[in-house]
Nucleic acid binder design. Structure first.
Lengths: 162, 162
DNA sequence: ATAGGTGCAAAGCATTTGCCGCGGT
DNA sequence: ACCGCGGCAAATGCTTTGCACCTAT
């Protein structure tokens, strides 16, 4: 069955090849913000006839077509997420690398006002919060071996997203 | 005479070499957000005995010591600005690449509340607005030559900063 | 049929690092 | 004198691309 993103591709008249279909499905299924390497891993698991170069090319194409949005949460690699559900922002857990989405419509308005005050029309914006779990204890990570800098994990946290 | 940043280096007990002194001065004089290439250009103009590797190493050292802050305004290269005057954010003019600084203390509070609502203590954040000059639309006087897409310029705009 | 997509490996970029002589404290 | 610093060029890590073949439309 066609994935949500595959439909978007067809709407935009993109030629649907086997690898694009797979990548589209991987993206449709993703609830997180995977980087190219991770997308490649997931796609290759579904169909080994895919090279990482194609993932790079596809992800770029999708971004140009407004199907995907590129994110930079630090760490040098770009991460992607489907464009959709109205504007939302990200809160990155600095201990685990987990990314939590949230949105605050009221907030958007404030930003537009700030821009206007400076003589600009707000075209887009980027807001990222870096925080630490409010743990009972004052210490980070309850028991986890809190490494000085954990690698970006980004486990989807659908429950916390709002 | 010693530059403002050179003083910070001394305070932190950094060994002050000729090239560090030059880089410190370049940074102290900068009112914009130069990338490494640009810093190298300016430093080399004052003293050719500097290699770009040193600029990279120095800029990194200064960042670790809290003297500089690294920024990413898109375009692949990191840009730097001295740490100082309390938190402020950036509004990037998408037509000229110019960067305008602004701050909004009230806004900061709102962010902390949002984080708290998600169960986190806000450690830091990043807010960037991308906008377009409100011009010709209805007001006379200004007739900016709005090029479709100019390269990142980042001319310091001390007058507009607030 | 044919414009465009794909794999592979090489090229590009920004940034980092090994080696070793040099300079600040 | 000693340890760290700086120059240079090679090495990285992510991303892009040239080329020749392959495939949706």
């Amino acid at each position: 069955m066609e994935s949500r993103i595959e439909l978007l591709c067809v709407e935009r008249g993109l030629k649907m090849t086997g690898q694009r279909r797979v990548i589209a499905r991987v993206l449709s299924d993703a609830g997180d913000h995977p980087d190219v390497e991770e997308l490649y891993r997931r796609a290759a698991a579904m169909d080994p006839r895919i090279s990482i170069a194609t993932v790079y090319r596809t992800v770029r194409l999708f971004e140009e077509r407004g199907i995907l949005e590129r994110r930079d949460f630090g760490g040098g690699r770009a991460r992607y997420e489907p464009t959709e559900h109205g504007h939302h922002h990200h809160l990155i857990d600095i201990d685990s690398g987990r990314v939590i989405e949230f949105s605050d419509p009221e907030h958007e308005r404030v930003l537009a006002v700030i821009a206007a005050r400076l003589g600009f029309d707000l075209v887009s914006h980027r807001l990222e919060l870096f925080g630490r779990r409010q743990d009972s204890a004052g210490r980070p990570a309850s028991h986890a071996t809190s490494e000085p800098s954990a690698p970006p994990v980004d486990t989807a946290s659908p429950g916390l997203t709002r």
